[in-house]
């Protein structure tokens, strides 16, 4: 699946997007954040407070307990500040 990062999540991880294949057992957005934060310091920094991170699956907002099975594109970002 393709992962996209925006704003300070993108800056902390150091890249705007990547393709990953999470192992079996990673079934929700929260699982995915926990798995990513074990991949290195930059990920641990980005996801150090997972409660503030928002996620979207295939361009629709989801909560952290959302299932990721079948997702093509998952985005992680801070609370939005547009308008």
């Amino acid at each position: 699946m393709k992962l996209l990062y925006f704003a300070w999540v993108r800056e902390r991880i150091g890249k705007p997007e990547e393709v990953v294949e999470p192992p079996a057992g990673i079934s929700t957005v929260a699982d995915l954040m926990a798995w990513l934060s074990r991949r290195g310091e930059e990920y641990a920094h980005a996801f150090e407070n997972p409660k503030v991170i928002r996620a979207a699956i295939d361009r629709a907002h989801v909560k952290s307990d959302a299932a990721i099975a079948g997702a093509r594109e998952i985005a992680f970002f801070p609370p939005m500040t547009g308008g």
Partner: peptide, 26 residues
């Protein structure tokens, strides 16, 4: 529409000030 744009539309503001650039907090 404005209330929802502020909180649900995926935009992020970064502000340039004398001391550098910082992300605006929600």
């Amino acid at each position: 529409l404005m209330d929802y744009l502020k909180t649900r539309a995926p935009f992020w503001k970064r502000v340039e000030q004398g001391k550098g650039a910082t992300w605006v907090e929600a």
